[in-house]
Design a protein around this nucleic acid. Sequence first.
DNA 1: GGATTTTTGTTGCAAATGCAACAAAAATCC
DNA 2: GGATTTTTGTTGCATTTGCAACAAAAATCC
Lengths: 150, 150
Amino acid sequence: MKEILREIGMIARALDSISNIEFKEYDLARGQYLYLVRVVENPGIIQEKLAEMIKVDRTTAARAIKKLEINGFIEKRDDEYNQKIKKLFPTEKGEHVYHYIRRENDHSDKVALAGLSEGEVESLYNLLQRVRKNIETDWDFVKKGNKRNY
Amino acid sequence: MKEILREIGMIARALDSISNIEFKEYDLARGQYLYLVRVVENPGIIQEKLAEMIKVDRTTAARAIKKLEINGFIEKRDDEYNQKIKKLFPTEKGEHVYHYIRRENDHSDKVALAGLSEGEVESLYNLLQRVRKNIETDWDFVKKGNKRNY
DNA sequence: GGATTTTTGTTGCAAATGCAACAAAAATCC
DNA sequence: GGATTTTTGTTGCATTTGCAACAAAAATCC
C-alpha cells in the first residue's frame, strides 16, 4: 500500500498554505487565487463550472466569487440568451493581480520540481492527469449524494 | 509550463471532499480523519509534530485534536520527563474507526490508481515523495514568517 | 547558572467552508 | 405544450481554519 494519496494531500496543503500567505499582499483572501486564475484563463465561465473545475462545493465557490466581485477582481455579466447564468470576467485589477499569482505559482513549480528531469516532469504530469480523471468521477458521484460501495 | 501543481490541488480537494462526506457516518468532523490515522500509526506523537506532518496550521491541529479527544477518539497523556508535551494515543473507539478510514482510503487508492501499471504507481510514488520533500522546505520557511524571493 | 531563544500549547477573533433548503430558469420527457 | 427534472444561483447556520498574541516549559548560549 503506497501512500500516494497522502503525499498528494501533504503537497497540496503545503502549497495552498504558502500561496494564501503570499497573496495576502494583494488583498486576496484564503482560496481566492484559485478562482481568479481560472476566470482569467477561461473568461465567460460560470460559477457552477468553476466549482467543478476547482473541486470545491458550489456554495463555497459562490461566496468566493461574490467576494472577488465586491473587491473588484472580477465582474459578472448577464448572458444574452440564458437569463439564469452569470458569466465571469476579470477586471483590469484582476488581470493585473493574475500576473503576480502566475509568478508565484511558477516559482512554486520550480521549487517543487527541482531535481526532476524533463522526462520525469512529463511523466508525473501524465500520471497525475490520469489520477485526477479517475477520482473526479467519484467526486461527482459522491457530491451528488450517491454512496460509493466498497 | 505544466500544470502539475494544479492537478495535485484538484486531486487533493476531490479526495478530501469525498472522505469528509463518507466519514460523517463515524461522527468525524471535517478534516479529523487526517489526524486520527496518524495518531494510530504514530502512537505517542505530539500535536506539534502532527501539524508538521499533515501540513496544517498548529492552531488548527490543536483544535482538531481537542475535538477528537472530547469525542473519545484519542487521548492525551502527560510525558514522564517533559511537562510541556502531551502525547497522543488512540482509544479503542479510535482504533476501531481507524479501520474504516483505512478501508475507505484503500478504496480511493484503487479508484485513483486504476489503469496505472505497477511500475507507474511505483514511479508516481517516488516522484511525489521528491516533490513533497522539495516543497516542505518552503512551507516551513514561509510558515515561520520568512519571505520567499522570486 | 542565569539570560535568551526555541518549543509546545492555548485562546480570541475574523473569515472561509460546506450542508440543507430554497427559488427560478432551462432542458427533457411524453 | 404542459409536467417533470436538471441546472444554476442564493441564503441561513454551524463548523473548521488560521493569524495574532500570549504563556510556560525546555533548550541553548556565554
